[in-house]
Amino acid sequence: MSVVHPNRVGGWWSSVVLIVAALLLSAPASAQSRVSLRGFGDVGRTTFAATQSFTAVLGSDTGRAFGGGVDVVFARRVFVTVRVSRFRRVGQRVFLFNGMQFDLGIPTTITVTPLELTAGYRFDRGWRLVPYGGAGISRNRYEETSAFSEADENIDARFSGYHLMGGAEVRLAQWLGAAAEAQWATVPNAFGNDPNSVSHEFEESNLGSMTFRLKVVIGR
């Protein structure tokens, strides 16, 4: 299964352009010529909004996610980030009945791969600790594969979402920083339509999540 929402793609890029433009315009003119490029890697703990569905199949609504990406920082304050991350966990298919859950022992692998574009502002006042915040859009790839399934019974679909994030970065060296960051994401209407699904049972449709992560930044 592949789900594409073509009507959202145009809106996606429009939003990006508008956010970046607004943030760039807010920077002092003298600083706008100073652009730095940074790379980063992160590890975080993601809790999915579809709590009951993920718990039923994976045993928990929470898991580790790894990510990485590129920051472009304009005038030390405005940034645009492109980040990709991945959550992957193996659970098992289930049957739900009258509040009881029966685990069927059929391995199911859930993989969530968000590609995010975030624009934000860094409150850089020359201190060692730099708070920051931002918002962005995402394209989320959701894969669900089960043992004994035919190809058309597995899922490989993409959904659009939005997110807010904030954190604080500390400089460890001239070219090295570390950050702690929180992100709230919503990915509406991702699942819950198939009557033979746990998400349908629990009436959960949002692939969004709350993530806390630690980040290592290379660059100035």
Binding site: A50, V57, L96, I110, E144, S146, N154, I155, A190, D194
Partner: peptide
């Protein structure tokens, strides 16, 4: 076959 396969998160 369908019953033995049960439910996944989305399908």
């Amino acid at each position: 076959r369908a019953a033995l396969r049960g439910l996944g998160i989305a399908k």
